[in-house]
Amino acid sequence: MATETITAEEALAVHGAEAAGPGMPQLDVSSFPNQIFWLLVTLGVIYFVLSRFALPRIGAVLAERAGTITNDIAAAEELRHRAREAEGAYDKALADARVEANRIVAETKAQIQADLDVEMEKADAQIAAKTAESQAAIDEIRESSARNVSEVARDVAREIVAAFGADADVTKVDAAVDAKLGERA
């Protein structure tokens, strides 16, 4: 019994750390004050740092960001509004320009038409004059050619008559030729 006790004590001495206290260090009451003290210190430090520095700073940054975003959205809205206005002005200017262009086109067209009419009239008059002139020339040519025809016919007739040897009266031959030409004409 005695020897056994000694061996047990020796065993305890060898593995003092494990065998001495209770198995779970969590239940070692002697370390509690230490842990609680340092826990409170740590929590105090973290709370101090958080409440004094970190949280106000992060809160401010988040608020600033939210403000910036709101402002940016407002600015974007403003810009969009302005862009819409500019677009409206542009459309209006475009429509005005189109109306103006149409007006100018119509005006020019009317003017050109007027000029064209005048020129047309002038040309028509000229053409009519030329036509009349030509008609006169043609009439004259026709008349002269008819006359030539009768002259040639009289000459031929005179020659034919002379060839037959008959001393025909010139005036009679001419009259006969004219009569024949008059029949055919």
Binding site: W38, I46, V49, A54
Partner: peptide, 22 residues
């Protein structure tokens, strides 16, 4: 103790992340 050390490390990490980081 080692508990002190690791608690301090936790506090330090908090400070690094939330104070130095920002």
């Amino acid at each position: 103790t080692n508990a002190t050390f690791w608690m301090a490390l936790a506090a330090l990490s908090v400070i690094l992340l939330l104070v130095v980081g920002t």
